[in-house]
Design a protein around this nucleic acid. Structure first.
Lengths: 206, 206
DNA sequence: CCTATCTTGTGAAGAATTTCACAAGACCGG
DNA sequence: CCGGTCTTGTGAAATTCTTCACAAGATAGG
C-alpha cells in the first residue's frame, strides 16, 4: 500500500466538508474544478488526491456528490463514530466539550478527566468528570479510541503516558509541548502560538 | 529574497520554543543535533532551516542559545509585540482570551468583539466587549495588526471582511470555513475537526 | 450516428523539500 | 603546537509533492 501524505489527508478532509456543503445546497454532481475552486487548490490536485484511492468520477460529468461523500468518509474511517476522551476540564476543555460539531462528525466524547480534585465529580452534560488517576480504568472500560489533551504543557506528557498505557491509539494535543508517543500511536498537535508566530513572520516579511 | 516554506517557518517557531526551554534549563550553547532530537527532526534539517537566514553557529561548538533566540525572534518578527483583536466572545474566545501565554509571547489582545448584544459592554479583564459593527472604528483606533476569528462558520466571512476593510493584515481563523481574503492579508486556519479526521485516517489504516 | 463539448485519470515533467556527505573551522588536552 | 574530536554550512543527490497535458470516456443536440 502506497504512502499517503499528510497534506493529501488534510485535503481529503477539506473535500469532505465541501461536499457536505454542496450536498446541503442540493448539488447532485460536482467536478474536480469546482472542488478545487472552493477548496483553494487546483483541479489536477483534487484528481490526483482522489486517484490515490480509486476512480470515483465519470468522465465528462464529474463526481456524484453522494458517492464521493461516502467514499471519502470510508477512506477517512468515518463510517462509524469514534470513542473519544477529553483530558483537561479547563476553559479550553470546556470550549471543546461544548463544540457539538464533533458529535455530528462522528467523534463521541465518552469521558472527561481533570487533575483538580475540586472539579472531579462535577457533571458535564451527563458525564461525570473523573480524576487523572482513573484514566487507565475508564479508558479501558469505555473502550476509548482517541484522546484530546487540553492540559498545561507541564502535565501533558504525564497524561499522555497514562492514555497510551491504557490503549488509546490517537492523541490530539493542544499543549505547547512535543509529546513522545510510541510508534503505533498517532499524534497531532494544535499549537495556537505557533500559528500566530507564522502570521507574525508573514507580516514581518513585507 | 528567496522563498521560505511554510514548514520551515513552523520549524523555526518550534526551535524558538525549544531554545526557550534550553535557556530556562541554563544551557549556554546547543547543537543542531540536540535541537533536532528535541524537535523530532534531523540535524541537517535544523542547519538547513537556519542557513536560510544566515550563519549563526560556531563549528565544533554549536549555537549560542542566547544569540539564536534573538536571531529567531527577529526572523519571526517577534522583537516587539503585536496588537491583536479577538472576534467572538463565546467559549472558545474566552479560552483563548484567558490563555496568558500569548501575552508572554508578544501577542497583545487589545480588543474583543461579539455579535451578541447581551455580551456587548461586558468587561473582560479590563477590556469592554464591543459590537461587531464597531470593528472598523476600533481596529483603526487601536491600530490592530492581526485578528483571531472565533465565531461560528456562517459569520466568519462577514467579520473577516470587516477586519480586512479596517486594515488588519493577518487573520487566525478557528471557524470551519475557507475564508477569502485579498492578497496581502495573511491567513492561517486552525481546524480541530480536520485534525481529528487526520487521526481517524491514521487509526483506520492499520 | 456524428460532432462538439465536458471532464476524468494518469504518465511524465517540473518544482520543492529533505537527506547525504564532507570540507573546513573551532576547541581541547597534552 | 599538534593530533583528535566536535559540529557547522552547504553543494549535490534523493525523494516527495505538484502541475502539466492529453488520450479516452461520457453526454447532448441535431
Amino acid at each position: 500500500m502506497k504512502k499517503i501524505s499528510e497534506s493529501a489527508v488534510r485535503r481529503l478532509s477539506l473535500y469532505l466538508r465541501l461536499l457536505q456543503e454542496a450536498d446541503a445546497a442540493g448539488a447532485e454532481t460536482i467536478s474536480s474544478g469546482e472542488l478545487a475552486e472552493r477548496g483553494g487548490t487546483t483541479s489536477a490536485q483534487v484528481r490526483k488526491d482522489l486517484s490515490l484511492f480509486g476512480s470515483f468520477g465519470k468522465r465528462g460529468l464529474g463526481y456524484s456528490v453522494q458517492e464521493l461523500l461516502s467514499r471519502i468518509r470510508s477512506i477517512l474511517g468515518l463510517q462509524s463514530s469514534w470513542r473519544v476522551a477529553l483530558v483537561g476540564a479547563g476553559k479550553l476543555g470546556s470550549a471543546l466539550f461544548s463544540y457539538r460539531d464533533f458529535e455530528a462528525r462522528g467523534f463521541n466524547i465518552r469521558a472527561v478527566f481533570d487533575s483538580d480534585a475540586r472539579k472531579v465529580g462535577t457533571q458535564w452534560g451527563g458525564l461525570s468528570i473523573r480524576a487523572d488517576e482513573e484514566i487507565d480504568a475508564v479508558v479501558r472500560a469505555e473502550e476509548i479510541d482517541m484522546a484530546i489533551v487540553a492540559v498545561p504543557a507541564d502535565a501533558a506528557q504525564q497524561v499522555t503516558d497514562r492514555l497510551v498505557k491504557a490503549g488509546v491509539r490517537g492523541i490530539l494535543n493542544f499543549a505547547p509541548a512535543r509529546l513522545k508517543v510510541p510508534r503505533g500511536v498517532a499524534l497531532k498537535n494544535v499549537d495556537v502560538t505557533l500559528e500566530l508566530e507564522g502570521l507574525s513572520f508573514a507580516l514581518n516579511s513585507r
